[in-house]
Every structure is written in C-alpha cells, then in structure tokens.
C-alpha cells in the first residue's frame, strides 16, 4: 500500500471510530499495526483535523440573527394563516388542531372577505396559475444544452459501472466498432480481448467496455470508450502515467480524451498494476512526444 493510499484512508476515517474493522480497510489496519511511521502519520492527521475543525467552528453569527429568524418565522406563519383565510368562510373558521401556528395566525387575520370579491380573486388567481403552468411547460419542453462533465464525474461513473458490471462473455476484439477501437499504441490490448456494449453507461451515452487480461492470472482491467453527449473538461489527451484515483474497492482508474472519445481505464489493483497496461515511452520521452511519434 502506498503512502498516498494510506493518507487517503486516514483522512477518510474519523478518529476513535471502529472503521478500521471494515474489511475494505484491513490492509490499512495491518499497516498501522506494523508500521510506527504510519501510526505517527495518523496522529499528525488527527491533530491537523482537530485544528481545522476548531477553526471552522470559531466564528460567531451576525448579531441579531436569532431575532431576525424568529420574526421571519412568525411572518411565514401569518402568511400561511392569511392563505387559510382566503378559503371559503366555513373552512377558514374551522379550527385546525394539527397546526397550532395556523390557528394562531388565522385568529390574527381580518374577518373573511365577501363572496363576490373572493370570486374575482379566484378568477385572477386561476388565470395566473394557467399562465405560470404554460411557462413551466414551455421551460420543461425546451431542450437544455447538456451540462459539461468533470473528470471526477467520469471516473466516478466508470468505477461505479465496473464495480457493478460483472464481466460476461463478450465479442472478439476483431468485431469491435472501428470508431471505438482502443489505441493499442498507448494501451496494451491483447488480441484475445473481449468487448461488449453497455447501454446508457455515462453522460447519457453508451460505452464500449474492453475486458483486458494481460496474462492468465495476471493483471485485469476494463477499458471504457465513450463518445459522451456532454462535453468533458479537465482530461489529458493521453493516458496519465499514474492513476487519478487512489486504490479503493480494489481498483484504481484514470481517464483521458482523444478527439471526441473519452477513455477510462479501470484497473484491478493499484498504480503498479495500472502501469503494466501502459505502453510507456522509453528513455526521456514524454507522452506528448510518444503520441506525436505514434500518430506521425
């Protein structure tokens, strides 16, 4: 377990609670038992937490806020009482034992309004409601532009998908959609890789899932290729050298974007396993240089 994963676990757990009994954190608990440096890090994290928590609470609300709230609550009660008085007279005068405030407010309101005036109000109100309903319907039916997705949202969706989606028999790689074929110059995709389509996978789009096994009993990963309906921001245009998430639930993941396709590699294991799926450039090559080379 890397120090980064240890810190993520320490930051997530509350001090003094029994979350270390969680099987998902068994490796963290073992490391804490065995490693004095890990215990010292936990002590430092908890100390930093106490300082931050104290600072977060060390502020006073504006003077008079409580009085202001009480006034507004009383006014809200009066309005609900006034609304009750706009109902026909025999209902307005009926006590409402389930709502003391409404009763109190209705006592404070003027006597019931005459029938003709009430009918005019009802007519105007029904017109306003009809217009409002029309406007709401128009807003509802008007197509909204898709909201952009963040890299975080893409990773969340992919990890959720892969932890829910049990591997099933797929189709041979040779039959995969040509427009979604993973770039085998950037990612290791053996010839016997299987794929299948997952409907409505993320960002309103389906995904092609490639189930990559590097070797029998070796590292396994799922590569999702999506053509998202919504734009995605914050992604690199090449596979990151490190996973973007810590190893949790036994997987880590990274995402990148090539043209209008988003690739998410969800690897069973940690950074060590993740790197085995990359085709790293040798020597001092950067990914950009490597990419330029393989594309050139």
């Amino acid at each position: 377990m890397s120090d980064r994963d240890l810190l993520a676990a320490l930051d997530a757990c509350r001090p003094g609670e029994s979350e270390w009994d969680d099987p998902a954190l068994a490796n963290v608990a073992r490391r804490l038992d065995a490693d004095p440096a890990a215990r010292q890090l936990r002590s430092r994290v908890e100390y930093a937490d106490r300082r931050l928590e104290a600072a977060l609470h060390a502020m006073q609300p504006p003077a008079g806020l409580a009085d202001c709230l009480l006034s507004r609550l009383a006014a809200a009660g009066s309005q609900s009482g006034a609304a009750a008085s706009d109902t026909p007279a025999n209902e307005a005068n009926a006590p409402n034992s389930s709502n003391d405030l409404a009763v109190e407010a209705s006592r404070a309101t003027p006597p019931a309004i005459g029938g003709g005036r009430w009918r005019r109000r009802a007519f105007v109100a029904s017109g306003v409601v009809a217009v409002a309903a029309t406007v709401m319907l128009a807003i509802h039916l008007w197509p909204e532009p898709p909201q952009p997705w963040t890299a975080e949202q893409v990773l969340d969706a992919a990890i959720g998908l892969c932890t829910r989606d049990a591997r099933t028999d797929g189709n041979p790689l040779a039959e995969a959609p040509s427009d979604r074929m993973p770039s085998r110059q950037l990612i290791k995709v053996p010839a016997n890789t299987q794929w299948r389509r997952i409907e409505d996978a993320m960002a309103g789009s389906d995904a092609i899932a490639y189930y990559i096994d590097l070797a029998p009993g070796g590292p396994r990963a799922t590569l999702l290729v999506v053509s998202p309906a919504a734009p995605v921001s914050g992604l690199a245009d090449y596979p990151p050298s490190q996973p973007a998430t810590p190893t949790t639930q036994g997987v880590c993941a990274a995402a990148w974007q090539e043209g209008d396709l988003v690739y998410v590699l969800v690897v069973e294991g940690g950074p060590h396993e993740y790197k085995q799926f990359l085709r790293p450039p040798g020597g001092d090559w950067t990914w950009q240089q490597w990419r330029a080379r393989v594309q050139g």
Partner: peptide
C-alpha cells in the same frame, strides 16, 4: 461510491492543510 468519497476527502483536506 465510498472510494470516491475517500479520495475527495483526502484531496480536500490536503488542500486545506
């Protein structure tokens, strides 16, 4: 997912620290 929350908590706390 719990893993996402762990990651976000740690990244946010790292930023504050």
């Amino acid at each position: 997912p719990p893993g996402t929350v762990m990651s976000r908590l740690s990244r946010a706390k790292s930023h504050l620290r």
